[in-house]
Nucleic acid binder design. Structure first.
Length: 591
DNA sequence: GAGTTTGAAACT
DNA sequence: CAGTTTCAAACTC
């Protein structure tokens, strides 16, 4: 006990300027969910996300640390090693700077957003020189902590530096932010904004087994980020759309008890019931993975906001009982039990990438046809009319063409849509473009060019029949003296293209509405069934299905639809949607 | 505040 | 890399 009580370590864990400076909206957002989120923590997280530390090589970090360490500012507490700035553990484990509470007491008070006093560690055996120590992990000196035999102070700089080196040796990223933003992460959590979520995710991911990732044991939860594909947790409930998670956030955020109870209920429901009873049955998404076995790191199954937590046990069978909104993807793919809650967009599986591609192709086609039609009509008009009469006729024709073209276009569109598979065939064959000529003959209209963003489409255009409408369009354009003629064609093309696009969007919307309707009715029927079952078994006549189901948290299959789904609230991406095997095909056909 | 639980870090 | 141990925070009573 050279240092005696850690708290005595004279060093002060002064928060480095960087910590304070880097506050950014992003960071703030990341922690907003925690009403009590200590400002410092926020700052720190921000730093993690914004600091350049992350991009620095470990060696550099070490150097920085070392330098800082070796040259303490005379007369003043040594500034914590730089790495700290970006150090992440901190972000995960409620860093010191975060909670003021002296001892282990839940920092969970979800109230008062006032920054609290710095957190103090209570290390006893690590000398505060291992990552177990929050201070050390955060890159700050212990100050006023309750630690014992603390070496994380100025007086033990040498030892500290060695520890840092050792730590970096083990893990070069040890002091880097665990929580970081990423395109994926951003996408994953963007929908969580309502809950103050996050554009970030845990780099390493958590490995929780019993907490359901809804307690601060979970680094992701603690950092207020959703579990991601990086996680290997079980029974994870910390994913976008999680009923349990929503309960935590939507409840009275100032009510600590409520939150904890909600978390406990959630965990109990998952773990108590199916989770650990008997063989570690699959939990949540993991359960589903049972079927997908080699799952673990399959990115396609990732939890984009939805995780994939891998199930390692054989209890596949029980997965159907899991209340957890299992892997949406897995379910979708496997067509698993509709009993599960799923959190997916109403348009999920409806609009596929190939649909967009096809849409582009169709629009290009339509555009070409429009040009052709317009050109033909115009040229014929020119032949038939003379002088002024011709001029006036031409203008009037312009206005009528649309409807005519729309019909043709619509037809083409319908054909195409009625059988998506035909698109590829149709396009090339019917097609309109003489790709090779297009660029030369005349510039494509803005609308068309915009649609040709897809490389394949471009190629397809070039490869298509030389007799296509586009070809005509090109010729046509050449017929126009350049000015107005071309402009008109462009305008017309754009109009038609936009019209088609609008129609497409309307269809998509319709699909979504249909899906919503189906889901709602399905949910209702499910609830009815559950209700009957419950009444049968318990004799309880209560009509409050939701309550009943929640009351049966012990092992009973959980409610099929989240409470909100039973309301008139339109299903939003976050609502549970039961996979409907019949729906998808229809939708696809429609599209 | 003591004791238990939990999961990351460290170790084998 | 998987399994085990150590550790300290989170949590419960």
């Amino acid at each position: 006990m050279e240092e005696g009580e850690g708290g005595e370590s004279g060093s002060k864990n002064v928060v480095p300027p960087e910590f304070v400076v880097a506050v950014s909206p992003t960071a703030a957002a990341a922690t907003t969910a925690w009403s009590d989120a200590p400002a410092k923590k926020i700052v720190r997280q921000l730093d993690f996300n914004t600091m350049t530390e992350q991009s620095k090589p470990p060696q550099q970090l070490l150097q920085q640390m070392t330098v800082m360490t070796q040259k303490p500012v005379a007369g003043s507490p040594l500034p914590p090693p730089q790495p700290m700035i970006g150090l992440q553990h901190s972000s995960v484990r409620v860093g010191k700077p975060e909670s003021p509470k002296p001892k282990s007491r839940p920092n969970f008070d979800m109230k008062e957003g006032t920054p609290k006093k710095q957190k103090q560690c209570n290390c006893k055996h690590s000398k505060c020189l291992k990552l177990y120590c929050e201070c050390f992990a955060s890159g700050i000196y212990c100050d006023g902590c309750n630690c014992v035999n603390c070496f994380n102070n100025v007086d033990n700089e040498a030892a500290r530096r060695e520890a840092v080196e050792a730590t970096l040796e083990r893990n070069p990223n040890a002091f880097r932010p665990k929580i970081a933003s990423s395109p994926q992460g951003a996408r994953d959590s963007r929908e969580e904004t309502g809950e103050g979520l996050v554009l970030i995710k845990h780099n390493k991911g958590c490995h929780c087994k019993k907490s359901g990732c809804l307690k601060k044991y979970c680094e992701c939860f603690q950092a207020n980020v959703l579990c991601s594909e990086n996680c290997r947790c079980m029974d994870c409930k910390n994913f976008e759309g999680s009923e349990e998670r929503q309960a935590l956030f939507h409840g009275d955020q100032n009510n600590n008890t409520y939150i904890q109870q909600a978390a406990n209920a959630a965990i109990t429901g998952a773990i108590g019931s199916y989770g650990y009873s008997s063989p570690p049955v699959s939990k949540k998404r993991k359960g589903q993975e049972l079927f997908l076995w080699p799952t673990s790191k399959d990115p396609s199954i990732s939890k984009s906001g939805q995780q994939v937590n891998h199930v390692k046990g054989p209890a596949a069978a029980s997965s159907s009982l899991s209340p957890v909104p299992n892997a949406r993807v897995a379910n979708a793919t496997l067509g698993q039990s509709p009993q599960k809650l799923k959190y997916r967009s109403l348009l999920a599986d409806i609009v596929q990438p190939h649909h967009l591609k096809e849409l582009c192709s169709v629009l290009v086609l339509v555009s070409g046809q429009a040009a052709k039609t317009l050109a033909d009509q115009k040229s014929s008009a020119e032949k038939r009319t003379e002088d002024q009469a011709e001029t006036s006729l031409a203008s009037s024709t312009q206005e009528q063409l649309p409807s005519q073209k729309d019909v043709d276009v619509e037809k083409a569109m319908d054909d195409d849509c009625s059988s998506a598979n035909q698109t590829d065939k149709i396009s090339p064959s019917n097609s309109c473009s003489d790709g090779a000529d297009v660029p030369k003959g005349r510039p494509m209209s803005p609308g068309t060019l915009a649609l040709m963003c897809d490389e394949q489409d471009t190629m397809f255009m070039r490869a298509s029949s030389p007799i296509g409408p586009m070809n005509h369009a090109c010729n046509t354009s050449s017929q126009f003296p350049s000015g107005q003629g071309v402009t008109e064609v462009y305008g017309e093309q754009e109009r038609i293209v936009l019209t088609q696009f609008r129609d497409f969007l309307n269809r998509v919307i319709t699909m979504g509405e249909i899906n919503e309707t189906k889901c709602s009715s399905l949910a209702r029927s499910e609830l009815e069934n559950q209700k009957h079952l419950i009444n049968k078994e318990t004799g309880n006549s209560s009509t409050d299905i939701v309550h009943q189901q929640e009351a049966t948290s012990n092992g009973e299959p959980k409610t099929v639809v989240p409470p909100m789904a039973t309301t008139s609230t339109p299903v939003v991406p976050g609502d549970a949607v039961t996979e409907n095997g019949e729906t998808k095909p229809e939708m696809e056909k429609e599209l």
